[in-house]
Write a protein that binds this DNA or RNA. Structure first.
Lengths: 142, 142
DNA sequence: CAAGATTAAATCGTACACGATACATATGTC
DNA sequence: GACATATGTATCGTGTACGATTTAATCTTG
Protein backbone atom coordinates (compact mmCIF):
# COMPACT_ATOMS: atom_id res chain seq x y z
CA UNK A 1 0.00 0.00 0.00
CA UNK A 2 1.02 3.55 -0.63
CA UNK A 3 0.10 4.84 2.83
CA UNK A 4 3.07 6.64 4.32
CA UNK A 5 3.79 8.64 7.49
CA UNK A 6 3.94 12.44 7.01
CA UNK A 7 7.75 12.65 6.69
CA UNK A 8 7.57 10.43 3.59
CA UNK A 9 4.62 12.16 1.92
CA UNK A 10 5.26 14.44 -1.06
CA UNK A 11 2.52 16.79 0.12
CA UNK A 12 4.25 17.13 3.48
CA UNK A 13 7.58 17.85 1.81
CA UNK A 14 5.89 20.72 -0.02
CA UNK A 15 4.05 21.87 3.08
CA UNK A 16 7.03 21.89 5.43
CA UNK A 17 9.51 23.25 2.89
CA UNK A 18 7.20 26.11 1.93
CA UNK A 19 6.94 27.03 5.61
CA UNK A 20 10.70 26.70 6.05
CA UNK A 21 11.20 29.01 3.08
CA UNK A 22 8.95 31.62 4.65
CA UNK A 23 11.02 31.41 7.82
CA UNK A 24 14.13 31.99 5.76
CA UNK A 25 12.62 35.17 4.34
CA UNK A 26 11.40 36.40 7.70
CA UNK A 27 14.60 37.96 9.08
CA UNK A 28 15.26 39.60 5.71
CA UNK A 29 11.76 41.08 5.51
CA UNK A 30 11.47 42.10 9.16
CA UNK A 31 13.60 45.27 8.71
CA UNK A 32 11.18 46.32 5.94
CA UNK A 33 8.18 45.55 8.14
CA UNK A 34 6.82 43.10 5.55
CA UNK A 35 5.37 39.62 5.81
CA UNK A 36 6.12 37.10 3.10
CA UNK A 37 2.74 37.39 1.30
CA UNK A 38 3.07 41.18 1.47
CA UNK A 39 6.50 40.89 -0.16
CA UNK A 40 5.06 38.73 -2.94
CA UNK A 41 2.32 41.28 -3.54
CA UNK A 42 4.79 44.16 -3.69
CA UNK A 43 7.08 42.14 -5.97
CA UNK A 44 4.18 41.67 -8.35
CA UNK A 45 3.51 45.42 -8.31
CA UNK A 46 7.20 46.30 -8.79
CA UNK A 47 6.99 44.36 -12.04
CA UNK A 48 3.66 45.84 -13.09
CA UNK A 49 1.98 48.70 -11.29
CA UNK A 50 -1.68 49.79 -11.35
CA UNK A 51 -3.09 46.28 -11.74
CA UNK A 52 -6.54 45.17 -10.73
CA UNK A 53 -7.22 42.99 -7.70
CA UNK A 54 -8.29 40.23 -10.07
CA UNK A 55 -5.09 40.38 -12.11
CA UNK A 56 -2.96 40.31 -8.96
CA UNK A 57 -5.02 37.39 -7.70
CA UNK A 58 -4.41 35.41 -10.86
CA UNK A 59 -0.66 36.04 -10.67
CA UNK A 60 -0.42 35.22 -6.95
CA UNK A 61 -3.11 32.51 -7.04
CA UNK A 62 -5.11 34.24 -4.32
CA UNK A 63 -8.80 35.13 -4.12
CA UNK A 64 -10.17 38.53 -3.17
CA UNK A 65 -11.00 37.27 0.32
CA UNK A 66 -7.26 36.91 0.97
CA UNK A 67 -6.02 39.70 -1.25
CA UNK A 68 -8.31 42.51 -0.14
CA UNK A 69 -7.17 42.53 3.51
CA UNK A 70 -3.54 42.11 2.39
CA UNK A 71 -3.86 45.13 0.13
CA UNK A 72 -5.60 47.16 2.80
CA UNK A 73 -2.81 46.55 5.29
CA UNK A 74 -0.23 47.83 2.83
CA UNK A 75 -2.49 50.77 2.02
CA UNK A 76 -2.66 51.62 5.73
CA UNK A 77 1.14 51.57 5.77
CA UNK A 78 1.15 54.01 2.84
CA UNK A 79 2.87 51.64 0.39
CA UNK A 80 0.01 51.58 -2.11
CA UNK A 81 -3.29 53.17 -3.05
CA UNK A 82 -6.56 51.63 -4.27
CA UNK A 83 -8.54 53.33 -7.01
CA UNK A 84 -11.73 52.30 -8.76
CA UNK A 85 -11.23 51.83 -12.47
CA UNK A 86 -13.12 54.63 -14.21
CA UNK A 87 -14.04 52.53 -17.24
CA UNK A 88 -15.30 49.57 -15.16
CA UNK A 89 -16.17 50.62 -11.63
CA UNK A 90 -16.37 47.04 -10.42
CA UNK A 91 -12.61 46.84 -10.70
CA UNK A 92 -10.12 48.25 -8.22
CA UNK A 93 -6.66 49.16 -9.44
CA UNK A 94 -3.74 48.95 -7.02
CA UNK A 95 -1.15 51.69 -7.45
CA UNK A 96 2.23 51.84 -5.73
CA UNK A 97 2.94 55.04 -3.84
CA UNK A 98 6.40 56.63 -3.97
CA UNK A 99 7.09 54.97 -0.62
CA UNK A 100 6.05 51.62 -2.00
CA UNK A 101 8.23 52.04 -5.05
CA UNK A 102 11.18 53.18 -2.93
CA UNK A 103 10.98 49.96 -0.91
CA UNK A 104 12.11 48.01 -3.97
CA UNK A 105 15.66 49.30 -3.52
CA UNK A 106 15.66 48.24 0.15
CA UNK A 107 14.57 44.75 -0.91
CA UNK A 108 16.96 44.41 -3.84
CA UNK A 109 19.50 42.32 -1.92
CA UNK A 110 16.96 39.72 -0.75
CA UNK A 111 16.87 37.37 -3.77
CA UNK A 112 20.64 36.89 -3.65
CA UNK A 113 20.53 36.29 0.11
CA UNK A 114 17.93 33.58 -0.37
CA UNK A 115 19.85 32.00 -3.23
CA UNK A 116 22.93 31.90 -1.04
CA UNK A 117 21.03 30.24 1.81
CA UNK A 118 19.82 27.46 -0.47
CA UNK A 119 23.44 26.68 -1.30
CA UNK A 120 22.31 25.75 -4.80
CA UNK A 121 23.30 27.24 -8.13
CA UNK A 122 20.92 29.08 -10.46
CA UNK A 123 20.47 26.16 -12.83
CA UNK A 124 19.53 23.71 -10.09
CA UNK A 125 17.15 26.22 -8.52
CA UNK A 126 15.45 26.88 -11.86
CA UNK A 127 15.21 23.15 -12.54
CA UNK A 128 13.64 22.44 -9.15
CA UNK A 129 11.25 25.36 -9.58
CA UNK A 130 10.11 24.02 -12.94
CA UNK A 131 9.57 20.52 -11.58
CA UNK A 132 7.45 21.92 -8.76
CA UNK A 133 5.49 24.09 -11.20
CA UNK A 134 4.95 21.05 -13.42
CA UNK A 135 3.34 19.31 -10.46
CA UNK A 136 1.14 22.35 -9.82
CA UNK A 137 0.06 22.35 -13.45
CA UNK A 138 -0.85 18.66 -13.28
CA UNK A 139 -2.94 19.28 -10.16
CA UNK A 140 -4.60 22.24 -11.88
CA UNK A 141 -5.59 20.06 -14.80
CA UNK A 142 -6.78 17.09 -12.72
CA UNK B 1 20.37 40.73 -11.37
CA UNK B 2 18.51 37.82 -9.88
CA UNK B 3 15.33 39.77 -9.14
CA UNK B 4 12.33 37.99 -10.65
CA UNK B 5 8.56 38.42 -10.61
CA UNK B 6 6.65 35.99 -8.34
CA UNK B 7 5.79 33.46 -11.07
CA UNK B 8 9.52 32.89 -11.63
CA UNK B 9 10.56 32.67 -8.00
CA UNK B 10 11.34 29.25 -6.51
CA UNK B 11 9.78 30.32 -3.22
CA UNK B 12 6.53 31.15 -4.99
CA UNK B 13 6.52 27.81 -6.79
CA UNK B 14 6.69 26.15 -3.37
CA UNK B 15 4.11 28.48 -1.88
CA UNK B 16 1.51 28.15 -4.63
CA UNK B 17 2.03 24.43 -5.20
CA UNK B 18 1.69 23.67 -1.49
CA UNK B 19 -1.60 25.56 -1.47
CA UNK B 20 -2.72 23.80 -4.62
CA UNK B 21 -1.94 20.47 -3.03
CA UNK B 22 -4.07 21.32 -0.02
CA UNK B 23 -6.93 22.16 -2.37
CA UNK B 24 -6.50 18.77 -3.99
CA UNK B 25 -6.87 17.08 -0.60
CA UNK B 26 -9.86 19.17 0.40
CA UNK B 27 -12.65 17.30 -1.39
CA UNK B 28 -11.19 13.99 -0.23
CA UNK B 29 -11.00 15.12 3.40
CA UNK B 30 -14.32 16.96 3.52
CA UNK B 31 -16.37 13.74 3.91
CA UNK B 32 -14.23 12.91 6.95
CA UNK B 33 -14.69 16.41 8.35
CA UNK B 34 -10.92 16.94 8.42
CA UNK B 35 -8.70 19.81 7.36
CA UNK B 36 -5.34 19.08 5.78
CA UNK B 37 -3.24 19.81 8.92
CA UNK B 38 -5.67 17.70 10.94
CA UNK B 39 -5.16 14.86 8.46
CA UNK B 40 -1.38 15.17 8.81
CA UNK B 41 -1.68 15.05 12.59
CA UNK B 42 -3.90 11.97 12.47
CA UNK B 43 -1.56 10.32 9.94
CA UNK B 44 1.31 10.84 12.36
CA UNK B 45 -0.75 9.23 15.14
CA UNK B 46 -1.86 6.32 12.96
CA UNK B 47 1.83 5.50 12.57
CA UNK B 48 2.63 6.02 16.23
CA UNK B 49 0.03 6.54 18.91
CA UNK B 50 0.41 8.06 22.39
CA UNK B 51 3.10 10.52 21.41
CA UNK B 52 3.88 13.78 23.17
CA UNK B 53 2.99 17.18 21.76
CA UNK B 54 6.68 17.88 21.35
CA UNK B 55 7.36 14.67 19.44
CA UNK B 56 4.43 15.37 17.11
CA UNK B 57 5.70 18.92 16.65
CA UNK B 58 9.13 17.68 15.64
CA UNK B 59 7.63 15.30 13.10
CA UNK B 60 5.17 17.84 11.67
CA UNK B 61 7.54 20.81 12.11
CA UNK B 62 4.97 22.70 14.14
CA UNK B 63 5.25 24.50 17.48
CA UNK B 64 2.92 24.04 20.41
CA UNK B 65 1.20 27.32 19.60
CA UNK B 66 -0.10 25.73 16.38
CA UNK B 67 -0.34 22.15 17.57
CA UNK B 68 -2.24 22.66 20.81
CA UNK B 69 -5.37 24.21 19.23
CA UNK B 70 -5.21 21.64 16.42
CA UNK B 71 -5.15 18.81 18.94
CA UNK B 72 -7.93 20.37 21.00
CA UNK B 73 -10.23 20.57 17.98
CA UNK B 74 -9.75 16.87 17.27
CA UNK B 75 -10.24 16.13 20.95
CA UNK B 76 -13.55 18.01 20.86
CA UNK B 77 -14.55 15.84 17.92
CA UNK B 78 -13.70 12.76 19.97
CA UNK B 79 -10.89 11.54 17.70
CA UNK B 80 -8.18 11.73 20.34
CA UNK B 81 -7.53 12.23 24.04
CA UNK B 82 -4.85 14.24 25.85
CA UNK B 83 -3.18 12.81 28.95
CA UNK B 84 -0.39 14.17 31.09
CA UNK B 85 2.61 11.87 31.14
CA UNK B 86 2.81 10.39 34.61
CA UNK B 87 6.61 10.24 34.64
CA UNK B 88 7.06 13.83 33.43
CA UNK B 89 3.98 15.92 34.03
CA UNK B 90 5.17 18.72 31.76
CA UNK B 91 4.50 16.47 28.80
CA UNK B 92 1.11 15.76 27.29
CA UNK B 93 0.61 12.51 25.42
CA UNK B 94 -1.90 12.36 22.60
CA UNK B 95 -3.84 9.10 22.38
CA UNK B 96 -6.14 8.09 19.54
CA UNK B 97 -9.65 7.09 20.56
CA UNK B 98 -11.37 4.14 18.89
CA UNK B 99 -13.18 6.67 16.68
CA UNK B 100 -9.88 8.25 15.70
CA UNK B 101 -8.34 4.88 14.90
CA UNK B 102 -11.41 3.85 12.92
CA UNK B 103 -11.05 6.90 10.71
CA UNK B 104 -7.84 5.43 9.27
CA UNK B 105 -9.88 2.94 7.24
CA UNK B 106 -12.07 5.74 5.86
CA UNK B 107 -8.95 7.61 4.78
CA UNK B 108 -7.12 4.62 3.34
CA UNK B 109 -8.04 5.43 -0.27
CA UNK B 110 -6.74 9.01 -0.14
CA UNK B 111 -3.03 8.50 -0.90
CA UNK B 112 -3.84 6.62 -4.11
CA UNK B 113 -6.35 9.29 -5.13
CA UNK B 114 -3.72 11.98 -4.71
CA UNK B 115 -1.10 9.98 -6.56
CA UNK B 116 -3.53 9.55 -9.43
CA UNK B 117 -4.26 13.28 -9.55
CA UNK B 118 -0.56 14.09 -9.85
CA UNK B 119 -0.42 11.89 -12.94
CA UNK B 120 3.11 10.92 -11.95
CA UNK B 121 4.53 7.51 -11.12
CA UNK B 122 5.86 6.53 -7.70
CA UNK B 123 9.51 6.90 -8.65
CA UNK B 124 9.09 10.43 -9.98
CA UNK B 125 7.05 11.44 -6.95
CA UNK B 126 9.67 10.04 -4.58
CA UNK B 127 12.44 11.77 -6.53
CA UNK B 128 10.67 15.12 -6.44
CA UNK B 129 9.90 14.70 -2.74
CA UNK B 130 13.57 14.04 -2.01
CA UNK B 131 14.72 17.06 -3.99
CA UNK B 132 12.30 19.26 -2.08
CA UNK B 133 13.42 17.76 1.23
CA UNK B 134 17.04 18.35 0.25
CA UNK B 135 16.19 22.03 -0.17
CA UNK B 136 14.52 22.08 3.23
CA UNK B 137 17.59 20.50 4.80
CA UNK B 138 19.84 23.11 3.21
CA UNK B 139 17.64 25.89 4.58
CA UNK B 140 17.66 24.23 7.99
CA UNK B 141 21.44 24.21 8.02
CA UNK B 142 21.91 27.75 6.70
C1' DC C 1 17.95 20.59 49.18
C1' DA C 2 16.79 25.31 47.72
C1' DA C 3 17.27 28.97 43.98
C1' DG C 4 17.98 29.62 39.44
C1' DA C 5 18.03 27.70 34.84
C1' DT C 6 15.80 24.78 31.54
C1' DT C 7 12.07 22.46 29.34
C1' DA C 8 7.07 21.33 27.79
C1' DA C 9 2.67 23.16 26.82
C1' DA C 10 -0.55 26.58 26.64
C1' DT C 11 -2.12 31.34 25.79
C1' DC C 12 -2.47 35.66 23.30
C1' DG C 13 -2.21 38.73 19.33
C1' DT C 14 -1.63 39.35 14.37
C1' DA C 15 -1.75 37.82 9.71
C1' DC C 16 -2.78 34.82 6.28
C1' DA C 17 -6.04 31.23 3.48
C1' DC C 18 -10.38 30.13 1.97
C1' DG C 19 -15.55 28.69 1.66
C1' DA C 20 -19.76 31.06 1.59
C1' DT C 21 -22.04 35.01 0.93
C1' DA C 22 -23.22 39.91 -0.05
C1' DC C 23 -23.11 43.80 -2.94
C1' DA C 24 -22.42 46.84 -6.66
C1' DT C 25 -21.60 47.44 -11.50
C1' DA C 26 -21.82 45.52 -16.26
C1' DT C 27 -23.69 42.79 -19.80
C1' DG C 28 -27.05 40.22 -22.53
C1' DT C 29 -31.83 39.41 -23.97
C1' DC C 30 -36.22 40.27 -25.11
C1' DG D 1 -34.77 49.96 -21.75
C1' DA D 2 -36.40 46.99 -17.66
C1' DC D 3 -34.65 42.58 -16.02
C1' DA D 4 -32.22 38.41 -15.30
C1' DT D 5 -27.49 37.01 -15.33
C1' DA D 6 -22.67 37.45 -14.85
C1' DT D 7 -18.52 39.61 -13.02
C1' DG D 8 -15.30 42.02 -9.64
C1' DT D 9 -14.55 43.07 -4.84
C1' DA D 10 -15.53 42.97 -0.23
C1' DT D 11 -17.18 40.81 4.13
C1' DC D 12 -17.62 37.18 7.54
C1' DG D 13 -16.49 32.95 9.98
C1' DT D 14 -13.25 29.19 10.86
C1' DG D 15 -8.81 27.28 10.98
C1' DT D 16 -4.12 27.41 10.65
C1' DA D 17 0.94 29.62 11.46
C1' DC D 18 3.95 31.85 14.40
C1' DG D 19 6.40 35.42 17.63
C1' DA D 20 6.19 36.58 22.33
C1' DT D 21 4.91 35.50 26.73
C1' DT D 22 3.16 32.63 30.60
C1' DT D 23 2.77 28.73 33.61
C1' DA D 24 4.06 24.58 35.54
C1' DA D 25 7.27 20.87 36.14
C1' DT D 26 11.99 19.19 36.07
C1' DC D 27 16.87 19.63 36.29
C1' DT D 28 21.27 21.71 37.97
C1' DT D 29 24.51 23.29 40.99
C1' DG D 30 26.27 24.83 44.89
Amino acid sequence: MSTLPPPDMLCFALYSTAHRMQQTYKPLLAPLGLTYPQYLLLSALWFGDARTVGALGRELQLESNTLTPLIKRLETRGLLRRERDTADERQVRVHLTDTGRALQADAAHIPDCITRETGMDMDDLARLRDEILALRDRLDRA
